[in-house]
Design a protein around this nucleic acid. Sequence first.
RNA 1: GCGGACGUGGCGAAACUGGUAGACGCAAGGGACUUAAAAUCCCUCGAUGGCAACGUCGUGCGGGUUCGAGUCCCGCCGUCCGCACCA
Length: 877
Amino acid sequence: MSNDRYNPREAEPRWQRLWDEQGIFTTANADPRPKYYVLEMFPYPSGRIHMGHVRNYTMGDVVARYKRARGFSVLHPMGWDAFGMPAENAAMANRVHPKAWTYDNIAAMKKQLQSMGLSLDWKREIATCDPAYYKHQQRMFLDFLKAGLVERKQSKVNWDPVDQTVLANEQVIDGRGWRSGAPVESRELTQWFFKISRFSEDLLAALDGLERWPDKVRTMQRNWIGRSEGLLVRFALDTATTPNGEGELEIFTTRPDTLFGARFMALSPDHPLAAAAAKNNPALQAFIAECQRTGTAQELIDTAEKQGFDTGIRAVHPFDPSWTLPVYVANFILMDYGTGAIFGCPAHDQRDLDFVNKYGLGNTPVVCPEGQDPASFVITDVAYDGDGRLINSRFLDGMTIAAAKEEVAVRLERATLGNRAVAQRQVNFRLRDWGISRQRYWGCPIPIIHCEVCGVVPVPAKDLPVRLPDDIEFDRPGNPLDRHPTWKHVACPQCGGKARRETDTMDTFVDSSWYFARFTDPWNAEAPTDPAAANAWLPVDQYIGGIEHAILHLLYSRFFTRAMKVAGHVGIDEPFAGLFTQGMVVHETYRKADGSFASPAEVTIEADGEARRATLLIDGEPVEIGSIEKMSKSKRNTVDPDDIIASYGADTARWFMLSDSPPDRDVIWTEDGVQGAWRFVQRVWRLVATAAPHLPAPGTPMTANGHIGAKALRMIAHRTLADVSDALERLRFNTAIAKLYTFVGTLQEVVNDPIRHIETDPVYAAAAREAFEILVRLVAPMMPHLAEECWGALGQTGLVSQAPWPTVEPDLLVEDTMTLPVQVNGKKRADISVPRAARNSEIETAVLALDAVKRALDGKPPRKVIIVPQRIVNVVG
RNA sequence: GCGGACGUGGCGAAACUGGUAGACGCAAGGGACUUAAAAUCCCUCGAUGGCAACGUCGUGCGGGUUCGAGUCCCGCCGUCCGCACCA
């Protein structure tokens, strides 16, 4: 019996060094074996990894190691999402250069990742802030510009007047800038846009083909893209009432069936007709200004009352020239959806109903639910948007909604106003173009020059990359590029005249929209990709990351891949064939008497029977054990991966991250759980070290047939092998681990009592060797260091990281006798053991002879006996 | 408001396409070893009745389909997530 403990502190760095020296995780593009590309979302170099990274990268590493053992040429790279605001904030706070800060962080985090024992190909490492990377991004910007996929236009943005920059919607909290706390203004700025909406239809349709994506993510993207079919309808205007004799107003509707329920028209405050009407109407001007001031804050939008202002303009109903409708400007109409104008049908739209109830415009129900008497169907406070038949609608009466929509469309397509059809079918999308301009220093420069004579001029390809200047000042808010003394001044590439550089940089989501493609040929100095290499590796077979990127990053990447295809850099549409979104790492919180939080490292927990009590280590002050929350600095409930790896080793951390909870759900980090994983590490080592001296040499042939004990052991080993393989294929790490616990329990029995068995019985010992070798190889993807150590102890000279996955012998999965549960009337009463080959009639006789069955049947004859092969017997009495 | 997911012991959870509910882990309790502790090993562990054999109940609640439902269907309740004035 070996009493030596396994010491990960000594063993883990030793194996990491050896793997590195032998370069066994380096991947060659020329490898002829079938490919497998596994990728985890690359980290932002904040300076330290957190437990979420440990979980994410462990999962990817298990897949990589498993697929490698299965004979695939595995691409498993890592890089850094290295541009972004935190580097600039650090520069402002600590007077460090963003570049130095970023590269220091990269070095620190790389060391941490390496201590996890990840099987990464570090030769392909990239950082998005490297000019060798962003050079190609700039080139693609120009490619896209040429292909008509980039546009420069005015748009409304969230402007932080203190930091003097545009903020993304998610950076605006309660109407204030997340950093400065200043009220955010709505500004019109000229911005660069990627025309993602060009691909709306395709991005939506292709979701159906992404079968290895979570339904949840696909649903979220579907909703985000937001396709709706409707009708563009041109209403004639009474020119006597319009400011400049305007003759028509175009609206978009998805409910043309409710046209006879119309009570008013409404314009967005940003609509040109609203502006025209306001020109000589100060009250309307004031109303519009008030609407625009409300801005983008969600809370305000939620609580804002529906408000409108009658412009005095009158529109004519398309089916009845004598029927006119008032045209309002209303605060709830968005300019950038549809045409920025609607017709209001209050009976069947809650917003319109709220509106008319405020202004006393009344309503007419035009859709009556089935089974309701139309005569008594009245709408007061709740609009009806369900199914039904048309009423109060002249020629549409009695039709279904679908039929009425079609009838209206057909009639209005035929009708004319001016010389054009009154209506036209249109598909609308919620998805807007992607504004990528940021007034920031630490980002990829947009390769454009503005010339006073030539206008907007692309930077010539030979002048790429447009490098960020290093000599910048962060003493003031705003964009340092814009106030740099020399950088932006440049000669126009076309006329040679005075010109200035674009000082905006790209949204950092652009950087992460193509890194997965760059990994396929990261050394390429000439082009973003080698299309041959990219097409060979892509799509990523398994992408793993957090659900928080369900829309933005994943949608942008899908767009970017299509745009890269247009520009000839790749030949595919979809970047990620398989997507897995892992859950968060959560931990209890500890609250001190003064309301502040204590960190797990500062408290000690005592179990007092059923109850648990927490006290501060430093002075024994009791602390309250609070709710379980996502690990965060503010709640101070974080656990530092460095500490865990230093005291337990990477294998323990990896194992714990995978056990207990299903990988897509949150996992609760507990000290007890880590202890359990640690115990298991030691247990495996003890078992292997104890058994190894008694096992025959590696490669001893198997002659187990006929040997009861050896056959049984082999069957368990192969059953475990089959189950674990299946679980890993489906990323069910927690169930794979449960099977391994059970298997180790079995091997414990083998070693415990009948240890003489292994020593004296060569057939049994050979089976035990096989079982141990299977165990070590099954454990290897999850605990690679321990597995190497055990592999050596078993007398193997190679690396288990390079050993092939064991092969299942199908014969060993088939039981000779099977134990069937026996039910009477659906309730389990007994078990019965029958030979595998038993006929149903034999089983039935044996079952009916059971005491428990007779008792349950109370002496009566059975009405029916159902035998489900291999599964169950149910006697119906 | 719209959309989606989920609800199983003290806790995290398992249960393939309807077929033994609670595998495995954690916690808890008991035992062995030890002067003692740690470590390790063994046993018990859904509720309830019974000395026991054994029985009854049990997968959020109420119905239904089925020989058989955690799983399928209908209606509720609750939790979480996403989107949100999208016409």
